[in-house]
Computed example of a mutant assay.
Amino acid sequence: MLEVSGRTFPVEVRYRPVVDPDDPDADPDRDQAQAICDAVLELGAEGDGDVLVFLPGERDIREAEKALLDLGGRDRRLAGTEIVPMYARLSSAEQHRVFEPHSRRRVVLTTNVAETSLTVPGIRYVVDVGTARISRYSRARGVQRLPIERISKASANQRAGRCGRVADGICIRLYAEDDYESRPDFTEPEVLRTNLAAVILQMTALGLGDIGAFPFVEPPDRRAVRDGVRCCTSLGRSTPTRPTRRGG
C-alpha cells in the first residue's frame, strides 16, 4: 500500500487488479463489475463514508449498478446502501441526487466529470477503474471519437484526491501498481487531439491572425491544422493560416 497526500487529509492507495497475474488463486473470469463489488465491500469494512466509483461511460455505470444492486439483495453488508448513478443522459433532477442530503451510505457511480468539473460532497472512499472516454480526432475518418483509454498519472492522482476532503481516505485502483507507473504523467492537451476547425474559426473571429504563428504552449501538428483549414474552407470560411512549427 502507498501513502499519498490528499487535498486536505492523507489518502491511502491500494492496488486491486481485476485479474491479478501474480495471484495463482485469482479468478480468470472476474470482470470489472465484480471487482467494483469486491472493492465496495472492502471499503465498507473500513468504516462509514460514501464511495465514489470512476467509470468510463454509461454502459459501465449501468453494469456496475446492476451488479451492486444484485449483491445488495444477497449480502447484508450492503443492506441500506444507496446506489446513485451519474452520467450525462440522466435528467437534471436525477443528476442532482448526488448533492441531496442523505442518511444512508451512498455509492456514487460516475464518469470523469467528477474528477475536476464538480465535487461530490461527503466522499471518503474512491474506486478507480483507471480508464476514461477521451476525445480524439481521427484524421483518417475525419470524425471526433471518444475511445476508452487508460488515464494518466495526473488524472489518477486527481481521482484519489477526491476522497481526502472530509477525513482520511482510501482509494482502490482496479489495476496494478506497475500499470500506474507505466502511464504518461499527464493527459495529452486537447489541442493536440481535436479537430481544429472550431479553434481556427474562433481565432479568426477574434482577429488573432495566423494559427501557424500563434504561441501555443503545445503547438498542434501542422497536418491537423491543414485538416482544420480544409474543413473551414468546405464551410465557405477563409482563414489566415500557414503551417505550424510542429510535426510534418
Score class of each variant (00 low, 15 high):
Arg77Met: 10
Ala39Val: 12
Cys171Tyr: 10
Ile200Pro: 06
Gly228His: 02
Arg133Gly: 09
Leu201Asp: 07
Val84Pro: 02
Ala140Tyr: 09
Val113Ser: 02
Val217Glu: 09
Pro184Asp: 14
Val108Phe: 05
Arg77Tyr: 02
Pro24His: 11
Val225Ile: 09
Ser152Leu: 10
Arg226Pro: 12
Arg230Asn: 14
Val191Cys: 05
Asp31Arg: 12
Asp22Thr: 10
Glu65Met: 03
Asp27Lys: 10
Gly142Trp: 06
Val98Asp: 03
Cys232Leu: 14
Gly44Arg: 07
Phe54Thr: 01
Tyr180Ser: 01
Ile170Phe: 10
Pro10Ala: 05
Leu71Thr: 00
Thr8Asp: 12
Arg14Val: 08
Val143Asp: 04
Tyr15Met: 02
Thr233Gln: 11
Leu235Asn: 10
Ala79Asp: 15
Asp27Pro: 01
Leu146Ala: 06
Glu115Cys: 08
Arg77Val: 15
Leu78Gly: 05
Leu146Gly: 03
Gly57Ala: 11
Asn157Met: 14
Arg246Tyr: 11
Thr241Ile: 08
Gly73Lys: 06
Ser5Thr: 14
Asp60Leu: 03
Lys153Leu: 12
Val51Pro: 04
Pro85Cys: 04
Glu63Pro: 02
Asp168Val: 14
Pro24Glu: 11
Thr187Lys: 03
Leu118Gly: 07
Leu208Thr: 05
Gly44Gln: 09
Pro101Glu: 08
Ala93Asn: 13
Arg77Phe: 11
Val19Glu: 04
Phe9Thr: 06
Cys232Thr: 08
Gly49Arg: 05
Asn195Arg: 04
Phe9Lys: 12
Val53Asn: 11
Gln202Gly: 11
Asn157Trp: 10
Arg14Lys: 05
Glu12Asp: 09
Ala197Val: 00
Val126Ile: 07
Phe99Gly: 06
Arg183Val: 03
Arg106Phe: 01
Pro215Ala: 13
Leu43Gly: 02
Tyr180Val: 03
Arg30Ala: 10
Ala140Phe: 11
Thr241Glu: 02
Arg150Ile: 03
Ala93Ile: 13
Val143Ile: 15
Arg222Lys: 13
Asp210Ser: 14
Ser91Asp: 00
Arg150Gln: 14
Ala224Thr: 01
Phe214Tyr: 15
Arg183Ser: 12
Val126Asn: 05
Tyr175Glu: 02
Leu206Gln: 05
Ala156Gln: 04
Gln202Val: 11
Ile134Arg: 09
Arg89Cys: 06
Glu82Leu: 08
Glu100Tyr: 11
Gly130His: 08
Arg145Asp: 15
Asn195Glu: 13
Tyr180Asn: 01
Glu42Met: 14
Cys231Gln: 15
Ile83Glu: 06
Lys153Glu: 03
Arg77Leu: 07
Leu78Ile: 15
Ser234Cys: 09
Ile148Asn: 00
